[in-house]
Amino acid sequence: MMTEKVLQKLQVKSLSILNEHGEVDSSSTIQLSEEILKKMYAKMLLTREFDQRCINLQRQGRMGTYAAAYGQEAIHVGSTTAMQTQDWLVPSFREQGALLSRGVNPELLFLFFMGCEKGNEIPKELHTLPYCVPCATQITHGVGIAMAAQYKKENLAVVTFFGDGASSEGDFHEGLNFASVYQAPCVFICQNNQWAISTPLKQQMHSPTIAQKALAYGIEGERIDGNDVLAVFIATKRALKKAYEGGGPTLLEMLSYRLGPHTTSDDPSRYREEKELHLWKQKDPILRFEKYLLNKGVLSEEEKKVFQEKISEDLKKHALEAEKICQALKNQDICEFTFKK
């Protein structure tokens, strides 16, 4: 006789707080000071403006290929705001918002994209790794750092970023498996922007969520509204707390949408529908947060203008500065910054 039993019933949770009209779910008890809210807003603006500047520079022949984070700013800023200084940030290649939010000088980022190795020289105290372009390899780096911290009994956690495409890679499996076996203090942030270059999510995986992939490793997985900076913040905060307390890793699927091209070499109008794009533009993370702050009276129209102007001007200056450095270092830097003397 055949015996069948249900061994485990698994579930996947989701979280959202701020809707696209800028209204906060009444059941939420989020308490952030006005100063922090404003900072988060400014960082999101900075990310968007940085992207725009880079795209222009690339189109003008002043910069190499660039992957903009247009539409994903809330993930970068929400998660890094939840981090503490001792935590490590292990980015992929689209996380300029996260790096800027951690305090990396825009000039360094400009240098990196202008092809100057000096751009990777991120100050040690920022506990931020340089960009990692190969798909998904940084997941294992992140787990390694987390395991090392565990071994050295350091009270910190690692936040590593990757995309929906990366969750189909072997490194994703290896990373999550090791992290779960060793209960490493690691927060896996999957930026599900629904497009792996030109491959839509549905053609890439059969599972309805990425969050549920966590269940296979016996760790918690949660889907977050990645265009809701408050939800991103809360979810990351909770996962970090769990990690500090020895609760092990968490997989956070941040559901968002890549509003721009994969990189400057890509033309999404060739493979995706204008309608879909339009729909997601309504859900723009910056717009909804801005509405929230304006309604709340934390931000005024004038302040907003001042922010925008200042950011735009600063970035222009940084870019010019980076161009100068690039010129000065021309071709010397490959050996300079790649090999240890």
């Binding site: 189109r59 003008q60 022949g61 890509d266």
Partner: peptide, 10 residues
């Protein structure tokens, strides 16, 4: 070959 793009003035 890759994309249709607008060029911003430098």
């Amino acid at each position: 070959d890759k994309a249709l793009v607008s060029i911003p003035s430098a």
